[in-house]
Structure formats: C-alpha cells, structure tokens
Design a protein around this nucleic acid. Sequence first.
DNA 1: GGTAGACCTGGACGC
DNA 2: GCGTCCAGGTCTACC
Length: 325
Amino acid sequence: MGTRLSIVPPEDYRLGRDVCSYGYFVLWPNHWDVDRRALTRSLELPEGPAAVGITQPSEIPGGKLTARFDRALARPEQAEAKRQIARMLRLSESADDIAAFHRVDKRFKKTGHGRLFRSPTLFEDVIKTVTSCNVAWPSTVNMNQRLCEVVGRKTGLDGFPTFPTPAKMARTRVGTLRARCRVGYRDQRMVELGKLFAPRGKKPPELDPEWFEDPANDDEVVFKRLIDLPGIGPYAAGNIMQLLGRYSRLAIDTETIRHAKNVLGYAGTERELHKKIEAHYEPFGAHKFRSYWFELWEFYEQKAGPAETWRRDSVARAFTASQLK
DNA sequence: GGTAGACCTGGACGC
DNA sequence: GCGTCCAGGTCTACC
C-alpha cells in the first residue's frame, strides 16, 4: 500500500496551468498525463526511488493537491518528498508574490501566469539546462529520456525511472553518456557537474544548492558562480537564475532572437537585437524573465493550443522553433 | 575584450 | 539508403 499525502498550495495555485508553464514539464522523468490531469514522475528519496502522481482533485485554484506514491513512505521520507514537490511546483511563491508580478506586468493577471515549473533539485535543473544548449528541442527530450533510462534507477512504476543523482552521474563513464545517452561533447561536463554536486564521502558537496537558493545572496554573485561551472555559459546561467527564482535577468538564445524578430518586429544585427530585447524587458525590473517567458509561452499556446493539452510523446516532442516561424 | 572555429547530434534535403 | 549541410550554446586559442 503506497503513501498518500495531502498538500495545501497557495490560494491561487492551479496545477495544470502552473505545471504546464515551462518546457521542462515534458522532459523525463516528468510526465503530464493530459487525460488524468496528473503530473507523474519519480523522486529520489532517502530509502530509495519512488514514483508519485500529483493531482488537484477539486480543479479549483488553491484546491488541495494529492500526491500518491507507489510505496509506503516513512515520516522523514514524507517530509523530503514534500520538500521536493514544493520546489518543483514553486509552492513557496505565494499568491502575493504572483500578484506583485501582475502589478508590474498586467498582461498576465487574467490567466494568472506567474510560476514556472522546475525540477525537484537544482542538480536536475542544471543538467536539464545543459541538455538544452546547442541542440534542437527533440534532442533535449531524447537526452533526458536516455539519462533516466540508462543512468537513473527503476521505480515500481514501469516507464518512470529516476533522474540520475549527482553521485551516480559522477560515477558514470563518459563513454556511456556519449554512446548510450547521446549527450555528445557534454559527457565530460556532466560528469564534472556530478562531482561538484555529489557529497565527498562524509564531507558535503563542493557546491551547496542552498547557497544558490538563498535570497540573501546577490544575483550578480550567483550568476558569476554559475557561469564558472562546466558547460554553463551566459544563456545557461541566465536560465538557471530563473530556475532559482531570480527573475531579474534574461536568458537570450536563438528562440529569443526569433521572438524579437517575428513577434516584436525588431531588426538589426545580433548585437543590436540583444540591446533592443534588454530595453524591451527593462520596465519589468525584478520580474523581467517572467514577462519575457510568458510572452513567449502564450505565443506557443496560440500556435499549439493550451500547454495542458500537449502530450509528451507527440506534440511536446515535436515542438521546435523552426515550426513556429 | 572580441572573434573564429571546433565540439556533437539529429533533422532536412538532394540524389 | 546514403551523404551532405545546417542549427544550436560553450569553450579555447588567438589577436
């Protein structure tokens, strides 16, 4: 008999909207079940891997969330599971926090957009970001699926292996990552990231995720530490900043450039476009990334329908910038 | 500080 | 079915 947990989210929280709000919701081991309206995935817990399905039975904003696990969880594991779920669903961002964003950018008040889905751990967010660099989206989907299947651990639910832990990634041979996970030249960088995030014997990891998450630390300092990590350049660091809840800067990639040209109507050289993009989002200050992202996301939804209806293995996998031109 | 080229994968295209 | 070209961000060497 598996454990069932009840979680009270912020009063404006709507599961479908707030999970299907960032591309990572279609990356393994995440799976948004369109028909059941459930987020299913695996988690690494102190006693081993577990699969979980999260629903919001009432479908009312702020309605209680139900998390059903495929095995029984002891009290300490329940606490850890709740912590990971809260990170993933951004439950720490209160209705007041989202209202503050909507005061700065009124365009998203009606839909309630404000929270961006992320991973249960910073390590998974960092690796997912590395898999999104220098590839088209379908390759990112493939890399994450293979990392889970090849390096992750099985759970009691078929098709839901875990995302690799830092320790497991650190021990994985680069040849395995390249040949079986098809991560290409990112292989060595992923192993190095695993080593940085993994505990060193009885010592804590060289990188402390809590330091990056601590709002007391300045955005500039955090950004500089991120950009020093292997495989992390300006775009990746900018993206990890928003995944850390730091929305004061953009993460400009080719998709941003496409958006600037096709939707905002800007023209010019790459450098000129960067300046125009920065100027366009400057009025949104500390919420800059959110304004950029939901502008882009609503464009995607106009093209492909509400994100809550995107099926991981068809619509979402085929989603590429070239199809949006 | 700025720039060119290598790094890989997979999709598109032509034959 | 095969070969070629190209897109995509980071890193290194060089100016």
